[in-house]
Design a binder for these strands. Sequence first.
DNA 1: ATGTGCACATAGGCTGTCCCTATGCCTCTG
DNA 2: CAGAGGCATAGGGACAGCCTATGTGCACAT
Lengths: 300, 300
Amino acid sequence: MPLPSRVADLTSFDLLLSVAELGSIGRAAQAHGMSQPSASERLRTLEGRVGVTLLERTPHGARLTTAGQLVAGWAAQVLARAADLDAGITSLRADRQSHLRIAASLTVAEYLLPAWLIALRSTSPDTATVLTAGNSVHVAEQVLADKADLGFIESTDVPAGLASRVVAHDELVLVVAPGHPWARRRRVTATRAAATPLVSREPGSGTRQAWEHALAAAGITESAGPLLEMSSTTAIKAAAIGGIGPAVLSLHTVAADVAARTLVRVQVGDVDLHRALRAVWPAGRAPRGPAADLLAIATR
Amino acid sequence: MPLPSRVADLTSFDLLLSVAELGSIGRAAQAHGMSQPSASERLRTLEGRVGVTLLERTPHGARLTTAGQLVAGWAAQVLARAADLDAGITSLRADRQSHLRIAASLTVAEYLLPAWLIALRSTSPDTATVLTAGNSVHVAEQVLADKADLGFIESTDVPAGLASRVVAHDELVLVVAPGHPWARRRRVTATRAAATPLVSREPGSGTRQAWEHALAAAGITESAGPLLEMSSTTAIKAAAIGGIGPAVLSLHTVAADVAARTLVRVQVGDVDLHRALRAVWPAGRAPRGPAADLLAIATR
DNA sequence: ATGTGCACATAGGCTGTCCCTATGCCTCTG
DNA sequence: CAGAGGCATAGGGACAGCCTATGTGCACAT
């Protein structure tokens, strides 16, 4: 999907949410550090783009119409994910002193960490965090070398010298475009899946290793080479959606596409594609301070 | 939260995703209908805002760095919700001929319909839809009067003259700010909850009716008046987060806040707060055409 | 009744952002 | 060695967005 369109500017939607909260355009403007006329005009043009009246304006304030409540609800979802993105970005910048250094695999960092970071900020607002992403081996090295206070990995084995706790689970899924022959049957044998060239990540990646590992555990040693190797999950998804071929990806990655029917999930018979996501720290040295807080948040 | 900040402009992130998919800044620019220098500059300023190098530029194209993959992953989540918002907005505008008229309660319209609409678009792209939101009684009227082809309601009883199918479930939850006394125990008796003034919707709302209905079903007839009545879910959430008092809301509404620890869920003993969400249509007249497609999508 | 306060709308002017065309530099390939 | 493909830089122009000042309407208090 190359282009979204009228939803690109989140500021106006955020302003709409503030109006809903505060009950008046003027107060919402104040909360956003802008003048009342600016807010008024912004909301007016927003209504123009949406094509529906969102606010009921009275001399005593402004309230959402029914359509406005719908739009506000949808916008709140977008803004919540934007807050995740912002939290993630904050933890990526290394420009301030770090009190909490996190090393995480891509899957954990993408799907779980942002919410944890927001939760951590609500318990201890002043904790600056630095996030480093890498594969599981890299994470283990960082933790062992005391370059990270807490690590998150997705390997089945816990590297030597580390203690761990399972914090979540992940699952690899095989997906195809809706037009693909496998999309109708929704099931293939492991042997057949292994014999079919896939769109896949590069050899070193955790996802690819996990796939090969799972096939090996099911007794399948022969497997076809990749149909196409790409370095980013996004590119692989786009290739699969475009019908280039089947792909294996993390369930989290494709959940939205499966729900929207742009990709179809295909069961792979008799192969265990689950894997645990674990927090790790140096054996015998339990996390303290903010690292302990984060661990508590991650384990619910 | 009045202000998000550096994530307000989704265009740049969308552009980043396109670079990941297409492997080059120039092609991404083309996909977005802009010139290559514009895209180049946009991405450069994006990197400036993020504070981290996101792209590895080579004379053969551009690839995401590790940090870039993380940011792209988070951004994809935001854009997926933005696509939901856009789909919802499209269905709200009544400016084109409608082939499929939907009437839905707010809860269904907010949390389930956008994904269904996107799925519907992938199966039958040319179906124009019109969405009307209202309470369950209103939805029933629309369907019975043949002003809507398909309705979605959240009441426990199916109105006379309508056939129905359960498509999902909802749950009311009691939430308080983390500093509230109930936040520690995480459980209150139904009697106590009923005796406590709550931040709540206006009397006619489905959520408020469902709450009172559930208390009555548990044998509790006495209940305190509301602490504060507000017309929008957003305002109620803000009041609860601000510590004004406990609030009762749909689980979907507060899931993100509970995950982020800005609100704490409190169990209410011995009260059944579940309710089914149902698709409805005129009895004896099964949905056909796009309405049947949508029903199939909604029921998985 | 009438004045005052609060809220939203309109007008006019300015600043800044964003985009486009043209051009240059680099690397790989034939 | 030349050409193609890719990204960066320079300069100029258009439009969007914001601010201050002012106008209008309603409710409540005096």
